[in-house]
Simulated assay, not measured.
Amino acid sequence: MGVIEVGLGGRLDSTNTMEHKVVTVISKIGLDHQSFLGNTIEEIAREKAGIMRPGVPCVLDESNPPVVRKVVEDYAKEIGTDVILSSTESAFLDGLSEEDFEPHQWQNLACAYTAFHLAYTKPASPLHHLLPAIQNLRWPGRLQTLDIRSVTGRREVVLLDGAHNVQSAEVLGSYVDNRLRKGASKVTWVLAASKGKELEGILKPLLYPGDCVAAVKFVPVDRMPWVEAMAPQDILAAASACGLDTTQLRDADSNLSGALRWAATVADGGPLVIAGSLYLVSDVLRLLRDAEQLKSQLLG
């Protein structure tokens, strides 16, 4: 059995060539990729609903707003299938504590749990497979703690997250506020973004006056020439509009290692977060991998 992620949208996605879908899942929907999917949450929901197939049940994240639920359920009636809202029954709750997860993680787990129950047709309970997988889950680029000592010399771990739209930025901002800002005078950020992103909405839940920001461009994305990095000066202008002092801003251009070194210096052991783009996540992980490989070669 395979778990296949839709690339973009749903209605026109290449995953629709699959002939043997057992269950489909629509998680929390937010405004993103409007140039492809539509300018309203209803239009985007309709595009996402296109992954559904007649007779194949669809799990919908119950935390979606009513307008999303209506669009998805109306389309399900059109094609002849059922929508099942995500659920965490008592059996699921017995094995895990909601307190150990962020709210969005718990919502995503509810979707996975519900879909797994629909897809798992063997008589034995699937929970003995599912619980160890959840307990050992590590998701690169999503609230990932990272050691950047090989590039910067900083001993404290940093937070790496691919938040790149308003919805994911709100989740990241809540995490940073609850976990990192307590007892800290500032948070230092290394940020990148794709051109066309709604930057004001993304930065608003992240940045506070007194924070420091290094803006950087991610490298060109292989085989995706339509994806372009936003100019660092545009990111810094948006950060300044959030109330940050211009003396606490750094234009790193395309120099990611330089951005990380500057951020590590000004953070001075305080919270450091890298965010704004999954392409930046890729660049950071590649930079650290190459640094570790070079270190191993020199020591070898």
Rank of each mutant, 00 (worst) to 15 (best):
L199D: 00
E170P: 02
D251N: 14
A45E: 02
E5P: 08
I41D: 12
L37P: 06
P132W: 06
H164Q: 04
V157K: 12
L159R: 12
G7P: 04
L96R: 10
S87R: 13
E43I: 04
Q135K: 12
P209T: 07
L131C: 00
L285A: 11
I235C: 03
A163T: 04
G183T: 09
G173T: 01
L256D: 11
A45L: 04
P65S: 03
M230Q: 11
T188N: 05
A49P: 09
G196C: 05
W139L: 13
D222T: 06
D61V: 00
V67A: 09
A239C: 12
G183W: 03
S296Y: 09
A252E: 06
K48T: 03
G183D: 01
V23C: 13
A49E: 01
D290Y: 10
Q107M: 15
T152S: 03
N136G: 06
I235L: 09
T247S: 14
G269W: 10
Q167Y: 01
H117Q: 14
N64W: 14
G276D: 01
D32G: 09
D13W: 03
Q293V: 10
R142P: 12
G300S: 13
K197D: 05
K195W: 00
V227D: 06
D94R: 12
V221T: 10
T81A: 01
A214D: 04
R155I: 08
S63L: 14
F36R: 14
I79M: 04
K217L: 06
V266G: 02
G80A: 06
E198Y: 02
I235A: 00
K77D: 06
G243Q: 12
A133T: 12
K28C: 09
R223I: 09
P132Q: 00
L285E: 12
N178Y: 03
L191H: 01
V72N: 08
R142A: 05
R223E: 10
Q144N: 11
V157I: 07
S150R: 07
Q107F: 02
T121I: 07
P220V: 02
L203K: 02
V25Q: 02
R154Y: 00
L31F: 05
L272S: 08
G258D: 11
R223C: 04
D245C: 05
R69M: 04
E42K: 14
Q233T: 04
H33I: 05
G55T: 02
N165V: 08
W139F: 05
S185Y: 03
T246K: 13
L8N: 10
L127S: 09
V68M: 10
K21Q: 13
T40W: 01
H104M: 14
V266Q: 03
L288S: 03
E200N: 05
